[in-house]
Structures are given as C-alpha cells and as structure tokens.
Design a protein around this nucleic acid. Structure first.
Lengths: 148, 148
DNA sequence: CTGTATCCGGGCCGATACTG
DNA sequence: CAGTATCGGCCCGGATACAG
C-alpha cells in the first residue's frame, strides 16, 4: 500500500508546465520571451545598467514605441527594474533583476550564434535556393535568374 | 597600391557581424531565430528525428501552414534536413543538422526557463498590475473623505 | 500522410507629432 | 531626456479546402 499515484496526479504535481502545449500558460511566456527586442535589450543590459537613450543608441533602428513597449513588458514580468532619478531633465535607468540576469546566458548565446554562424547559414541558403531553381526551372540548364 | 585598410574594411574583417545593428545581416538572422515555432521544433528534434505528423502532435496547436513554413525556413537555413521515403503514403522525416544541433542547448534552456520561472513571472505581473491600479485609481485612498 | 493554396482578421511595428 | 498618442500598412497566423 505504498504510494498510489495516478499518472494524472503525478504530471500535475511534478511536470506542471509544458511549453509544448498550446493550452499551457508557460507557452504564452515562451512566446513572450522569443521576442527579438527583448533578447536584444537583455544583451545590452548584460553589460550593466543602461539609460533609455543608451539603449536607443545601442539597438540601432528601434523605434521609441517598440523600445518602451518592450521595456514595460520586461518590467511587468520582473525581468528589469526601472529607476527614475529626479534630475532635470529626468534620468531613467534600466537594470536587470535577478530573474533577468538568469536569462543573460541564453540571450548572449543567441546573439553569438547568429553572428558566428551567419556565414554557414548564408551558404546553406544559396545552396538551397540554387537547388530549388534547378528543380523548378526545368527547360535548358541556363542559370537565368528568375525574380518574382 | 599598398594595403590601405579603412575602418570599414577592418571592421568587416574582424568584428564582422553585430546583431545590434539594424543594418547588419546577422540581425535579420537573429530575428528569424527568435521565432517560437522554430524554437519549439528544435526542442522536439532534440529528442531525435521526427516525422511531420509527430511534430504536429508534439507541438499542440500549430497549424499545418505554420509548421510547414517553419520547417521550410529551417531547411533553407541548413538547420534541419528533410528526407522523403517513397513509401505509400509518403513518409517525411525531419532531422537536425550539425548546425541545428549546435542550437539545441540554447533552445532547451529557453523552454526550461519558461517552464521553471513561470510562477516567478506570474507573481511579478500581479505585483506590477496591482501597483499600477493603486497608482491610476487615485480617487480617494481608503473608505474615507471624498472631499468635494 | 504530407503538404499547398487561399481567405482574411488582428496585431505588430515603424513613422510622426506632441508632452512633461 | 524619456516617453505617450495616433495612424496606417503589412505580415503573422488560424481556418479551411484541396491535391499528390
């Protein structure tokens, strides 16, 4: 008469969340995390606290709307803190929380991977595209660049 | 005609890519990598090669359109291979390439983080939301003087 | 089984103008 | 400096229906 735990009870007690399941709340969080702006901000904050304008400069091409929106979301999720110093004009500083810092590693790996493997991916793309061209453009084998 | 290396040439030779820059091609790759479906597929393939229908089952809630679209993109980028066995009906198997396998680690960390830290994020959200409520609903704080 | 094609609504996101 | 507000286009992405 030892423990009699059903499969259902077990999964509810131990596995809890599974991002594979669309119905699982962690899936939504998973979606939120897979945001390029969020990951970029995390990479920027890995170097220490930053001011709004610094982030704006670092992440070239981000609009104020997206930057603010991203930062607000991160603040709400407990990933960054927002500190306002009552100077004139005001100075706002963003810094990662402990929770946010626990994401630094993966965020940096992401960015590093993209930068170091770009050439390999680029080569794969060309290979794939040229193969597709040969396959679709059946006629004589003249590499005519078909541009839709 | 001695070597005259400009700053541009130098950065192109050494630092090469910087995903922070909107103009950098690695930034685009960074964006495509931060896709929830891609990361989910990677998590699924970390357990070995999978068939189309298996992926469809594992990733509950994905539409055939998104699944195919994601797999095509990954194939083009050299992250997965697509193998067709001429059985009846056809059997299609997807498997990660070496390049794709080098992403397993980060993909799994991502999923794991979302699942293990959901509770913490959830708590942070409630704290943030309640704080905002107190701040915005400033009428009279407490059942007292609603001075006209 | 493994997709492809099409429709179409929602929201993402950039651009711009304005405020404290 | 650090945002907020608003508009509008574009693309994401689900729901079919259908083909090889």
């Amino acid at each position: 008469m030892t423990t009699r735990i059903t499969a259902v009870e077990k999964s509810a007690a131990k596995e809890a969340y599974d991002a594979f399941l669309a119905s699982c709340p962690s899936r939504q969080l998973f979606s939120t995390l897979t945001d390029k702006w969020l990951l970029l901000v995390l990479n920027a904050l890995a170097g220490g606290a930053r001011r709004y304008s610094e982030l704006n400069r670092l992440m070239a091409g981000v609009s104020p709307k997206m930057l603010t929106q991203t930062l607000r979301s991160m603040e709400r999720n407990g990933i960054v803190t927002r500190t306002v110093e009552p100077t004139v004009p005001v100075t706002v500083t963003y810094e990662a929380t402990d929770l946010g810092r626990s994401l630094f590693s993966v965020a940096e790996q992401f960015k590093a991977w993209a930068e170091t493997n770009f050439d390999a991916v680029s080569a794969a793309r060309e290979h794939y595209d040229s193969a597709k061209l040969r396959h679709s453009a059946r006629p004589t084998r003249s590499p005519s660049p078909g541009r839709p």
